[in-house]
Amino acid sequence: MRKMYFVLAAFLLVSSVGSAQMRKKDTAELETAKYAGKYTYGEGTDFGNGEVLVYPESDSTILFYINIEVGEPSYNMGDLYGRVSIVDGKGVFERKTQYSDDGCKWSMTFIDDKLIIEILDEQYECGFGYGVYADGEYARKNNIIPEYFIDFADKKHYFKNLKVEDE
């Protein structure tokens, strides 16, 4: 009987040590956590404004949500979310859309407290409203890891539950 208790205790000890070693990193511990936060451009202006929320998904990937609006004369807007692999502060977002054969493609570069988005394809079509483009320089407003975002349809999406491949 004692031998069985000893074997059971040894098994529990090895199991707990093994599970502690395989613990998933907290998002704040990830390499990409240094890019996390809220970035904006054009706040308080009539020509348009935008916001990007950045969430560290793994040591090499981020999830993001972007919403942008343009002012007069069209007052259009657009939003989308996605995943980007980041290497040395740079990554490329690319997605085919139902609106075009060419799709949506841009680079994302993190420098200091800025996020620079540059369109990489002249046939840019992300499904945004007329005259709405993601490119620009976004200033970091905070480095708080966002838990969720609320899209233009007023639906709340939690980053940790996003299924980007389904979009």
Rank of each mutant, 00 (worst) to 15 (best):
M1F: 08
M1Y: 06
M4V: 13
M4W: 04
V7H: 08
A9M: 06
A10F: 09
A10R: 05
F11C: 15
V14F: 15
G18A: 05
G18T: 03
S19R: 14
A20T: 07
A20W: 10
A20V: 07
Q21F: 13
R23I: 14
R23Q: 12
D26K: 11
T27L: 14
T27P: 15
E29I: 04
E29M: 06
E31R: 15
T32A: 13
A33Y: 10
A33C: 12
K34D: 08
K34R: 12
G37W: 01
G37F: 03
G37Y: 04
K38Y: 06
T40V: 14
G44D: 09
G44Y: 11
F47I: 13
G48I: 04
G50V: 07
E51P: 02
L53V: 11
L53P: 09
V54N: 05
E57Q: 15
E57P: 02
S60H: 02
S60I: 02
T61C: 07
L63G: 00
F64C: 01
F64S: 01
Y65W: 12
Y65F: 14
V70R: 14
E72K: 02
Y75F: 15
L80R: 15
L80V: 13
Y81H: 11
Y81T: 09
S85H: 01
I86M: 03
D88E: 14
K90F: 02
F93W: 03
R95D: 00
K96F: 07
K96T: 10
Q98W: 05
Y99P: 00
D102A: 07
D102T: 04
D102N: 08
G103A: 02
C104R: 00
C104W: 00
K105M: 12
I111H: 06
D112A: 14
D113I: 06
K114V: 03
K114T: 08
L115D: 01
I116H: 03
I116P: 00
I117T: 08
E118Y: 07
I119R: 13
L120D: 06
E122Y: 09
G127E: 01
G127K: 01
F128D: 04
Y130H: 07
A134F: 11
A134G: 15
A134S: 14
G136K: 09
G136N: 11
Y138A: 00
Y138P: 00
A139W: 02
I145G: 08
Y148T: 00
Y148V: 00
Y148R: 01
F149M: 07
A153L: 11
A153F: 12
K155H: 08
K155Q: 10
K156Y: 13
N161V: 00
N161D: 12
E165Q: 04
E167N: 13
E167Q: 11
